[in-house]
């Protein structure tokens, strides 16, 4: 019945629950294994600057002398290179993709 192929499909789905989610009210389910936001755990970091050297987008800036770690989130492409290379496991990628932002400020962490 070549005239009604589409009608069948439309009818079938009209009787089902919608496969979409109501986004702002209902968040998307995080998928395990997704590369989301970069998480920095300051406690273990020794400011060795390896991650900053390896980052392909120069989103990280680390100052060894001042013990300063600067992360520019808008540059970060969540590639995970820094996570792979960090000797102290102080970097990780979460499955959460973060919320929208209106500021361009970098996140600055200072060690003592």
């Amino acid at each position: 019945m070549p005239y009604f192929e589409m009608s069948f499909l439309a009818l079938k789905w009209a009787l089902r629950k919608p496969p979409t989610t109501q986004y702002p009210f209902e968040a998307r389910k995080a998928i395990a294994g997704s590369r989301g936001q970069l998480i920095f755990t300051q406690d273990n970091c020794v400011y060795c600057t390896v991650c900053a050297k390896k980052c392909p987008t120069a989103a990280l800036k680390v100052d060894r002398a001042q013990k300063k770690f600067v992360l520019d989130r808008l540059r970060c492409i969540s590639c995970g290179c820094c996570v792979e290379i960090c000797p102290k496991n102080s970097l990780a990628l979460s499955t959460d993709h973060g919320s929208p932002t209106t500021s361009r400020d970098s996140e600055i962490y200072r060690g003592s």
Binding site: I31, A32, G33, S34, R35, I77, S78, C79, G80, L93
Partner: peptide, 12 residues
């Protein structure tokens, strides 16, 4: 794709 590579359209 996201579950196996971590990215949706840019697999990386």
């Amino acid at each position: 794709i996201e579950a196996t590579t971590g990215g949706r359209v840019i697999f990386g």
